[in-house]
């Protein structure tokens, strides 16, 4: 497996639409739940342990068994009660497929799959293994909101990256766990929920003035 290929896929500059999404951080900032670096740290730990864990498991599964993508896609729908978050995930899945198809021959996984399904399919097409797909998924669930925090709160970018560096071992653990479950049926995959992210996403979708798409 090519580590450089994984870096291409996980690069924040990949034109896959992520820059317009805050991963729920905009609502958390607006409601006062995240105001500073400590608040961001708590937010990212929580997001990694819930959305990140689910995304990693499904990216790994979709990488290992891409042809079964409708099962993974339905499994993510079942784990995403917020319609706004479903839309955000599918919009980012579509954007990632566009970028992925320009680089590798990606298998057909529908026009607008959930983001982890697209990530698994693109990773498989790139010759990456399920653990790599999972680590890209886990890493992406924290780097997106971290970048949004730099823009929304004006946090010190060095301090934010120090936070991301401290989260990296946890991303690796979650990815290893995800890669160990690729033979499991969909109902046995993680289903950790974050109700405040779901509620916040629904509120965010109704705002008249917002900076991020989600």
């Amino acid at each position: 497996m090519s580590l450089a290929t994984l870096l291409v896929l996980a690069d924040g500059r990949l034109p896959a639409g992520g820059h317009a999404h805050s991963g729920g951080l905009e609502t958390a900032v607006s409601s006062g739940r995240v105001r500073d670096l400590a608040g961001l740290s708590g937010f990212l730990h929580g997001r990694l342990a819930t959305s990140g864990r689910v995304a990693a498991a499904f990216a790994a599964a979709a990488c290992a068994r891409t042809a079964e993508w409708p099962v993974w896609d339905a499994g993510l729908d079942a784990r995403t009660p917020s319609p706004a978050l479903r839309r955000a995930s599918r919009a980012q899945g579509r954007a990632l497929l566009r970028a992925g198809r320009a680089m590798w021959p990606v298998a057909a996984v529908g026009r607008e799959p959930h983001h982890p399904v697209a990530l698994g399919a693109v990773a498989a097409a790139a010759g990456l293994d399920p653990a790599a797909a999972a680590v890209a998924a886990a890493h992406g669930t924290v780097t997106g909101p971290a970048s949004a925090a730099v823009r929304l709160l004006g946090l010190d970018p060095y301090a934010v990256h120090a936070l991301l560096a401290r989260l990296a071992p946890e991303c690796d653990r979650i990815a290893a766990d995800a890669a160990s479950r690729t033979a499991a049926p969909v109902d046995d995959l993680p289903a950790a929920g974050a109700p405040l992210l779901d509620i916040g996403a629904e509120q965010h979708a109704t705002w008249e003035v917002r900076l991020f798409a989600s």
Binding site: P15, G17, H19, A91
Partner: peptide, 19 residues
């Protein structure tokens, strides 16, 4: 919607506009 980065959405990551 451009996530605080209007130039990114038209130049560096055009996916949302293409969609």
């Amino acid at each position: 919607e451009t996530g605080c980065c209007p130039h990114t959405a038209i130049r560096d990551d055009i996916s949302a506009n293409l969609d």
